[in-house]
Structure formats: structure tokens, C-alpha cells
Design a protein around this nucleic acid. Structure first.
Lengths: 246, 246
DNA sequence: AAGTGGTCTAGACCACAAA
DNA sequence: TTGTGGTCTAGACCACTTA
């Protein structure tokens, strides 16, 4: 049995349709009344589902018109986002990853594996560490993962090969962060300099959380991305991009 | 008359009490039943009020125990590089934009309009400036744009309506930046704190550069994005996302 | 006029925590 | 057992948009 609340299931369904392109940027998702009929529920529940998507920034509701997709996900090309394999300059460089912490602790009332790794690029002689990644992984979802050797296996490879879990979506929040002593040492940074950090969560296809993520990037990391802007017709809801109505 | 929805008023009252220290970090705010009695309303309305505070990260609800103050300073969430218009929390808030610099200078051997604006959110009484945007726009491409009034027209709207130029793609690089004196003043930030900044360029459909962009965000701005992960077959090259082959 | 979302009421039953 | 928050029902009236 699935004891997931109905409104969560509804939000999950709609979210999947958005991420899979069924409803695209600027499209209207089904109206509240449509959802009420489709799921045989009441309007309050349908609104709860939509409220989740609004808070995720995936849709926007406009009175009298409908609920419209805001996602620009397919338009993103993220470079250097977590993986340094892409940024290797020549064949003598390899991506490296070392485990610095692998412990089990109770977070939010559930046992979690805390896995901290330092990652970077090596060219044989020199190793330049570029990020410190901390993951929280629920043991209930991944039994036995606490004993896994992550020096020689990537986390997502273990997810896929050993648990048949396929991370599909991440929600990430970017901010600046003053590194603590440990991070400072690991990344060989100078004190007092704020670094770019990303915090977020990863979800599988069913929308279940599989990992909490925290990455701190060395100052040397160039964090670049490309976006494309849809030209919206005048009648459609405005979708500003570094710009907006005054 | 105050036509503000009751749940917004309730949230405003509780928020004020939190920010004024009536309820401090870890304290319980009044229970839903208490609020129902105090405001003479129903539980759904009380829950709507609390939901606002939950989404702002100000409180956390725990079943069986109560609703507790988390006290993070109120923040402003930007989703997928949208503008502040998207992040407005209620109908009393409006996005504001003021020109602080509009000069012509020669950059890279060509005359460019340097347009600096400070932007943010206003709720009538209070205005919170959240970013300083500097654009460099080539006069050769946009003759006469130096005299344009940008207090009352968005840059991209002018591009579209007056020049039929449709920005289509941006290349952005994120980093941290120590704000200078002017930025510090405009954003009311405290010295010594690094801010998130984005630098990049915008291109039209033909791939011609139409704008250089530099945005510095206030510390209160939280930058959220959603990404999807392509699940690659074992033989294909890895497309890492917060993870990679070791 | 019909359809959309925004607000609100007045209940119900449930799971969980603390006394 | 009492109080807390979590979910859900079944309506109501409203403001706004579009036809």
C-alpha cells in the first residue's frame, strides 16, 4: 500500500509531467477543477498539491487564467556542477575523490550515512582539490551502504548498481559560505574568503528523496551555466530572465 | 478598511513577534487552536498563516508537539534565475527597479551604454533592495538607447519593443564577490561579507551579443534551481551531477 | 456567462507526543 | 487522556479573465 498523502502523489504526478515535458514552459497545467475530477478529491486537496509546486518554483498561479509552468530546466547546461571529469584539460589529468568521513548518525529521527569526500583533479604529480562534498543518505532506503567502499566507487554508481536507485532530479540552493577550519585545510584556501556552496536534495523517479547534498567549491572553480530564454507571446505570463517588468 | 486576507494578517503578526523577539529561537508559537480562538477564525485559515512562515523558513511544525521558531532572517528565493517578480509572496508586494547610473563609455573600442540598476521588492512601507545589475549595451546595435528612460521600462522590453531584439541565450558564471563601497550602500549590506555574483553575456537568436551582465545579489537572496539527471546507459559517457566516476 | 484561482467556513478522522 | 499538527471533505462567496 502507498500511504503517501494524496496531495503529495498529485504533486508528484504533475511534477513528473513537467519534468518530462508533457507540460512545457508557459503551458497551463490542468485546472484545479480538472484535478478534482481526475483524482476524485476535493478542491482543497488539489490546491495543496499545486501549492507544493508553487513553493518549488515550478508553476505560477494566475487568478482567472490558470496555473502555468515556470520551469526552465531543459534549458540549463551546467558546467562544473559537481563533476570535474568534464573539466579535465588533458589526458594526464584524472578526477580524484577521497573519503574523509564516513559515519552513521541519526538525523531527523532516521539513521543516515554521512559521507564526506574531497574531490579534485590530479595530473600525476600535483593534486588540486576543488570541492568538499557531504552527503546524507538514509540507511532505511540503502541498507548496508554504510560499509560500502567509496574510495573506489562513485556514490551514484552504487545507487544504480547495488540498489537500482536512479537519481533523477535535484533541488539545489546556491549561496556563499565562510569555510570552517576543516574545509579550509582540505581545499588549501586562505581564511576569510567566502566560497560558493550548494545545498540541496536528490530525488529518484518516484520523487522520493535519496540524498541530501552539501558541496563547497574551492575559489578556483569556475561555475558556469548557459540558459536559453523563451520568447513569450505578449499574452502569456511574463517569464523574466535577469530582467523583469518594472 | 484593510482588505488584506486574514491569513496574511495573522502571518504578519506572528512574523513581527518573531522578529521582535517575543518568540525566540526554539520557542513554540501559539498552537493552531490558540490562533483559531484569538482571531475568531477556523483552523484552515490559521494553517494558511503558519504555512507562509514555514515557507519562509521562520518556523517548523512538529506533529504532536507544536510549531517552533527557527529564526533565519527572512529571505528571498529566486527560482531558476527568474526575476524578483516571480518571488513576490503576496499581492501587497511589488518588484521595484531604480536606475543609479546611465552613462555612455567606450569599452572594447566601442561605445556602450552602462546601465546600473538596483532592484528589489517593496511592500508599500518597506523596500528591500536585493540586487545591483550592471549592463553594458553596445550603442551600435541599439542607437538612441542611451536616452531611454529605464525607470519605467524593463531593459528586455525595450530590446523587444523598440529594437525587435529578442535575447535568447545567456552565458553566466557564478562566483562570490566582495562588494565595494557603492554596492554595500545600495544593498545595505555589512562590510566584509562576500556576496553571490553572476557575470555573463546575453545573445540574440543569431548568436550576436546584445548585453554584458553583472549582477550582485544581496545576502538575503537564496538562489534555487531544479535540475534533472539523465540516466545514462552503462556504456555511455557519464553525465555527472554532483557525482562522477572516481 | 463560464471558467479560473483566492479566501474562508465547519466540520471529520488520523498519527504522534506528553502528562 | 489531552493537545498537537497532518490530511481530507463539502461546501460557500469572491475577483478576475475570456469568450
Amino acid at each position: 500500500m502507498d500511504f503517501t498523502p494524496l496531495y503529495v502523489q498529485m504533486a508528484r504526478d504533475i511534477r513528473a509531467d513537467i519534468l518530462n515535458g508533457v507540460y512545457q514552459m508557459g503551458d497551463a497545467i490542468p485546472s484545479e477543477q480538472m484535478l478534482v475530477r481526475r483524482y476524485g478529491t476535493t478542491r482543497g486537496t488539489a490546491r495543496s498539491a499545486i501549492a507544493m509546486l508553487v513553493n518549488e518554483g515550478l508553476v505560477r498561479q494566475i487568478r482567472g487564467k490558470g496555473t502555468f509552468v515556470l520551469l526552465r530546466s531543459a534549458d540549463y547546461r551546467l558546467h562544473n556542477f559537481g563533476g570535474f571529469t568534464d573539466s579535465l584539460q588533458n589526458s594526464s589529468q584524472v578526477a580524484v575523490s577521497h573519503v574523509v568521513e564516513q559515519t552513521v548518525e541519526v538525523v531527523d529521527g532516521a539513521e543516515q550515512l554521512r559521507l564526506t569526500r574531497v574531490r579534485g583533479i590530479s595530473d600525476g604529480n600535483d593534486t588540486r582539490f576543488l570541492s568538499v562534498d557531504t552527503s546524507l543518505i538514509p540507511l532505511s532506503r540503502f541498507p548496508g551502504i554504510a560499509e560500502q567502499d567509496f574510495e573506489n566507487a562513485s556514490l551514484y554508481r552504487v545507487f544504480r548498481d547495488r540498489y537500482d536507485v536512479h537519481p533523477h532530479r535535484t533541488e539545489i540552493e546556491l549561496s556563499t559560505e565562510l569555510p570552517d577550519e576543516r574545509i579550509l585545510t582540505l581545499l588549501s584556501e586562505t581564511p576569510g574568503r567566502a566560497l560558493l556552496s550548494a545545498r540541496g536534495r536528490a530525488f529518484d523517479e518516484r520523487g522520493e528523496e535519496v540524498e541530501q547534498i552539501h558541496v563547497i567549491y574551492a575559489a578556483a572553480v569556475r561555475f558556469s551555466l548557459t540558459t536559453t530564454i523563451q520568447d513569450v507571446p505578449a499574452s502569456a505570463p511574463a517569464v523574466p530572465q535577469f530582467d523583469e517588468a518594472v
